[in-house]
Design a protein around this nucleic acid. Sequence first.
DNA 1: TAGTGGTCTAGACCACCGG
DNA 2: CGGTGGTCTAGACCACTAT
Lengths: 245, 245
Amino acid sequence: MSTGGEVGGPRWHQVMTELAGQIGAGGFRPGERLPVEAELAARFGVNRLTVRQALAELARAGAIRTVHGRGSFVAERPYRFRVRATAPSIVAQMREGAHTVTQELVAHAVVERSDLPEPVTLPDARLLRLDTVMAVDGEPWSRDTTWLSAERFAGVPSVWTPQTSLTGLLAGAYGITTRRSWRRHSAEPASAADAAALGIALGTPLLVLTGANSDGDGEPLTQTHRRTRGDRIEYEIDLDPDPDV
Amino acid sequence: MSTGGEVGGPRWHQVMTELAGQIGAGGFRPGERLPVEAELAARFGVNRLTVRQALAELARAGAIRTVHGRGSFVAERPYRFRVRATAPSIVAQMREGAHTVTQELVAHAVVERSDLPEPVTLPDARLLRLDTVMAVDGEPWSRDTTWLSAERFAGVPSVWTPQTSLTGLLAGAYGITTRRSWRRHSAEPASAADAAALGIALGTPLLVLTGANSDGDGEPLTQTHRRTRGDRIEYEIDLDPDPDV
DNA sequence: TAGTGGTCTAGACCACCGG
DNA sequence: CGGTGGTCTAGACCACTAT
């Protein structure tokens, strides 16, 4: 610093890069609380709102996490979980990696087929809709909605536990082998509901997956809408036929 | 309004949903300029900063586009381009749909292999790096970086035009058929450079693709890093073996 | 109850755009 | 040049968290 060079850019941007640099250099440890906003404002010689804009950008980028009434904390694991998009069960993949995965069932209802997002691939008119929140190693990770036949799978909600994997449940209780059918990926800002459920700032980028799975015969079985923290996931799509497997 | 119902939530959120409703209901046409911030502030009876927070959220969601010195405009096409992730050339796909696609070469350089993002699949030590900005129907759409052998393809920059498709160029001038090899998808907030190149607000969600293509024999040929506006793209991944093809 | 972040205001000045 | 959004300040009060 004090190289005499042009500093340039808005003050909040300078504050942001300065803080990001200190975090990256280990000046603040993962999980550690940053100084309070008023303290940062005094330290940088700027108004508190200027500090807040810098912190907001850091939060969107996943470098810190800000909690109302408690403070801003350096992100625990700057880690992006890599998931194979071509496999049907994400839960199974993660548990292979010795991670704790839970899926809390926050709501379920029987809905009409018009409730499904495009493209609609399920044949049933009445569908069971499961709204769940997935957490990895205790940290909220994605907000998921799954639709499946209300008639065939009416008993699913009553046997659901946070340890349930839908793919595993269908295999165990119904003898159905699930296969992936199609996937679509896009990116959206977190809505107020997303932010509340995932403990992130409003507007944080989410990776949005919509997709469907079919049974062993290729018949449509489930349809899914998953909203995952963008800073915590990376979908991997292997297209080359691998001759070693 | 004045239904007597609970309004709830912060004022900026109310302003946001009110404006979003008017846009959705056709109160403002696509491309139309919104009233200036001071006018909106007066109309809603709030401070200009409160209006600005509402507009910032609408911009992140892609509903409006704000331009310094000119104003905020309702998004032209609330349209998400659907792209098959399993095909090698996105440019070809879009032109099939009768869309105008240009790729401006903004920079090119010869770099070391360490410049490549993980996982590194190209064998060459010295690589040609192409930085381009893709526009669809005149609107900036993605920021791309492509690496390929500096030795074999040294002539590429000198023949590049905005109409060039790299896949087409390799086929035409080098007789090479390109195949997709692997892809990774994640989501990130737009950096300052992204925002400037794509004409979007800082922090807007981007769909980030990293991937590689190989030649007909499966030999690694190119590696790509593409940052696309999240509100303008949807990657489609077909996994079911299609018996008709 | 004290400390923290979240919201809002009033006012000022700067940077960019177009005629 | 006038009009627009972008930044910054000083100060106030509210909502949430922990003790």
